[in-house]
């Protein structure tokens, strides 16, 4: 059935997008216009409810079209062309929303090299034993953060706890998203390994936090 066949990403119908969008292709301007409209429809919905929605979806759609046109050779046909194109548009839109939303918010004003303390307030709920276990867990967390993590990891962890997305932390540190995610992820792995070295498993942690 034609409708069903059209949804398969291997069909020429979908791969025809690349050919119609290339320089010099017949009907290229129409294809560009239709792609822009498609992206705009999706962005208008997806961006409106996020981070205050303070971007123009038409502007983002236009920027996305330019990026898609310059990236046509990277489309590998493993998904529908329109899904691939929309992923580029959404990423652009979310990045712009984050940039505007977090504009006035800085990382912790401290410098690297400082220890990160954990306050022990609010641990007194429940039984004396559960409070004691929580305090012990938090003390151990503080030891591990300051003994097993690098200065940069402590600094980035503080940024994550301040609510900054990895993308925004990367921008403030003149780094990139991949590097900051790896720092955070590696830090978490080190902390987990540190707990397990003293016999505290992931299940123990979740049980104590309950």
């Amino acid at each position: 059935m034609p409708a069903q066949k059209a949804k398969d990403s291997s069909e020429p119908l979908l791969n025809g997008w690349c050919e119609r969008l290339r320089d010099g292709a017949a009907g290229r301007e129409i294809a560009i216009s239709e792609l822009r409209s498609y992206l705009h429809r999706g962005l208008s919905q997806a961006l409106a409810s996020r981070y205050g929605g303070h971007v123009d979806p038409e502007d983002i759609a236009q920027k996305a079209v330019l990026k898609i046109l310059s990236s046509l050779d990277t489309y590998r046909g493993e998904s529908r062309f329109t899904t691939w194109a929309m992923s580029i548009a959404v990423r652009l839109g979310i990045s712009e929303l984050r940039r505007r939303h977090y504009q006035g918010i800085s990382l912790d004003s401290s410098t690297t090299g400082e220890a990160l303390r954990v306050t022990l307030e609010d641990t007194e709920n429940g039984s004396a034993e559960s409070s004691s276990r929580r305090r012990s867990l938090l003390n151990r967390l503080e030891e591990l953060i300051n003994g097993n993590l690098t200065d940069r990891q402590r600094y980035v962890i503080r940024g994550v706890l301040n609510g900054l997305p990895v993308e925004e932390i990367a921008a403030r540190l003149q780094s990139n998203r991949n590097a900051i995610y790896k720092l955070v992820h590696d830090a978490r792995l080190r902390l987990r390994a540190g707990f397990e070295a003293t016999g505290v498993t992931a299940d123990d942690i979740m049980d104590i936090l309950r």
Partner: peptide
């Protein structure tokens, strides 16, 4: 550096407990 609140510590510990190689 601003001290970590209990809620922040809980959040971090929860993430640590669920961390696996990526």
């Amino acid at each position: 550096m601003k001290a970590m609140t209990y809620e922040e510590a809980r959040k971090l510990l929860g993430a640590v407990a669920q961390t696996v190689p990526d």
